[in-house]
Computed example of a mutant assay.
Amino acid sequence: MVSIRGNALLGSDLTFTEDMTIEIDDEGVIISIAKEKKTADYLLPSSYVIVPGFINAHIHLGDAFLKDQTYGSSLEEAVGPNGIKHSKLSTSGIEEKIGSIRNSLEMLIQNGFTSFADFREEGIRGIDLLRNELKQYPIRGIILGRQTEKNTFDEVSKNCDGLGIRDVFDINQEGYTTLSKLKTNNPSMLVGIHVSESEEVIAESISKFGKRDISIITENDVFDFVVHANYSKDEELKLLSQRDIDVVCCPISSLYFGLKFPPLELIQKYDILFSLGTDNVLSCNPDPFRLMAFTLYNARANCQNISPKEVLKSITVNAGLILKQKIGQLKIGYSGDLLAIDLESYNLKFSKDVYTAITLRADQSDICFQMYKGKVIKWKDRK
């Protein structure tokens, strides 16, 4: 067992609470949180605040080797089925792919992420590549596989944590039937899909199916969450809410490709749980601080009212709930994944609000202590 004592953001509302002792058992699970002034294995300075480890709810970490090769390209040109990314993936060697995965994992950890959900390309082969690399890194990878010409939905689902489907053009009626059976047999299996990422995607959906993509996916009771929803309409968000389908938004990636900022305020209006992801590493680094600040600044620019606390919850509490894992909260029974941020650092000194400080001013250098499953992976005060 290990114990940490300090100020902390506790529970599902990230309530700031002073001088708490958190105990984590040998399995890496939080077993006690109490305001008891007793000796702890790690007594953190009073300027630190303990927060849940960050969760990247949507990433494609295998395309890091394409950094800065797609700027100025359209979404379709960069990451479409016949675009730069998939052309390069089909011809790149195993060492290049492994190097790309390792670079992404190292960035995730250094920036304070303790969990991520990857939409994995290349079927079972892609899943195996990532799973093998994860054995060497202190981070939780939730792998959402994708079917290929060689691997069916059923085969892929047996080798990972769920399915991350490209879009409505990548699935036919037989596929929906298969997904329905898989979900019936395994209700906890995660299924996500990209929707309404661009106007072109919506136009193609209308041309091919006679309706917009969100209308299609809400007719099939197999999806747990959608990714993007940049161009979703009021009535479509209402449908998602009625179907209890969550939304993961990737605002940096969307604006990188010249797309619309997601309607976060409307998403909240319909009580839809939302989280954030960084999406393709080729378009932006997996940096939670940049992601939070970018989201808040652009929400203001788009006249959307989103609070710093809600944005912080989106990459902790909400992400854990969307991904159906006991992560993202400092709470008994949850994984002992946590960070400690120094509120007296140069970046944060004099700030009067902890949530605004973390989301708008902090960066990776302000993380002074980091744990994954109760194991220390960063401690700046270590002698």
Rank of each mutant, 00 (worst) to 15 (best):
K269N: 12
D63W: 02
N186W: 07
S215I: 06
G277N: 03
G126R: 00
K349V: 15
V247L: 11
S115P: 05
G93W: 03
D41G: 12
L259W: 10
F223G: 01
E236Y: 06
Q69Y: 07
G112V: 02
V281L: 12
Y137S: 02
L360P: 02
I139V: 14
T148H: 08
C303W: 11
L282E: 11
K233C: 00
N280P: 07
E197N: 06
D279M: 08
E200D: 11
Q304H: 07
Q325L: 02
L276S: 10
H228Y: 12
I358C: 01
S307C: 06
D25P: 09
C249D: 10
S196K: 07
L190H: 08
I101Q: 02
F16Y: 12
F65R: 03
F113E: 03
L105Q: 09
G123K: 07
I143F: 00
S283A: 15
Y297P: 05
L89H: 09
L179K: 02
V29G: 10
S3L: 07
M189P: 01
S351V: 04
N132I: 05
D279P: 06
G258D: 14
L338M: 15
S198C: 10
S92Y: 09
D167M: 04
E155A: 14
D353H: 08
P45G: 10
E155G: 08
Q364W: 05
N298I: 05
Y346H: 12
K183T: 03
T295L: 13
K97R: 13
N280A: 09
